[in-house]
């Protein structure tokens, strides 16, 4: 069991998302940076979709009431086990009573804590990803208790080691494909969209990231149609909205671009005021 002593800024349980219920209007949800989750789970020998804790900017304070292995990946939040620094991307053994804390954000924005076997929290519609009203809570709260397996593990530091490419944490480039309505933009607009540097506005969360600079356009709204994480919508007033994991399943704004799977992970590690630009893959 893992007890939440302090929840941090915005911490939630996530796996790789809720597939197959979109025709009922259910968002995918799931970890914002799925690359980091897969790394953490791989280093623990878990299934890649085992549930982890997603931590945003400021990490939680957690106490372990079991023996297990943990692994942290994604943003570097200066993790400490009983006040001793521990590295990201490495399986670390913890004992009953150990306290995991986080310090100052060093790189990226979202960090992931995996545990041997994954967190065994409430599973709804085949996923443990928190999303209200599908699950009861959307974030961890003080005194929450998360179940996990108790496995005595004599972990040696020489164990599993891989070199993780963390360059995406600092990357400003979002690889994109044309969205369904890209061709409705004029040639000049298409060029501008792919050449402009955009700033991340303060309206950024698990549902969507809005970009700061207005992008003038004369596109008509579309008949409501499917959208998905990574879809870049353009509103009549010129707002560019990049949909993220908790986005709705349908929308009525033109879909001008679509982020690649890895670009979604890059954007998930960005915060207010940082810059990004799109790079067309086709």
């Amino acid at each position: 069991m893992v007890k939440v002593l302090k929840p941090g800024l915005y911490s939630s349980v996530q796996d790789l998302g809720r597939m197959g219920y979109q025709e009922f209007g259910v968002p995918y949800s799931g970890a914002m940076d799925q690359y980091a989750v897969k790394i953490a789970n791989m280093l623990l020998g878990n299934h890649e979709s085992a549930a982890v804790i997603e931590m945003t900017m400021t990490g939680p304070l957690l106490q372990f009431e079991c023996e297990t292995l943990i692994c942290i990946s994604g943003a570097n939040m200066n993790p400490k086990l009983n006040k001793e620094n521990i590295p990201n991307n490495k399986a670390v053994a913890v004992k009953h009573g150990d306290v995991l804390s986080f310090g100052k954000l060093q790189s990226g924005f979202r960090s992931y804590l995996g545990v041997l076997g994954g967190f065994k929290t409430e599973k709804v519609l085949d996923s443990r990803s928190m999303y209200v009203p599908i699950t009861r809570a959307s974030i961890l709260k003080k005194n929450d208790v998360l179940f996990s397996e108790n496995t005595t593990f004599n972990h040696l530091s020489k164990h599993s080691h891989i070199k993780v490419d963390e360059s995406y944490l600092a990357s400003e480039i979002l690889e994109v494909f044309k969205g369904p309505e890209f061709d409705k933009l004029t040639k000049t607009e298409q060029k501008a969209l792919l050449e402009t540097k955009f700033k991340i506005s303060k309206d950024n969360n698990r549902m969507a990231y809005q970009l700061e600079e207005p992008f003038e356009n004369k596109l008509e709204p579309i008949i409501t149609s499917a959208v998905m994480p990574g879809t870049v919508q353009l509103t009549p007033s010129g707002k560019l909205i990049v949909l993220m994991r908790d986005c709705q399943t349908t929308g009525g704004y033109p879909r001008v671009l679509q982020l690649s799977d890895s670009a979604l992970n890059v954007l998930a590690q960005k915060f207010t005021g940082q810059s990004v630009r799109f790079k067309n893959l086709l």
Binding site: G20, E23, I223, S225, A226
Partner: peptide, 14 residues
């Protein structure tokens, strides 16, 4: 095919 979603005048096939 993992998913087929319909709307007013469209189908999304994943």
């Amino acid at each position: 095919i993992i998913e087929v979603r319909s709307a007013y005048h469209s189908l999304l096939i994943i």
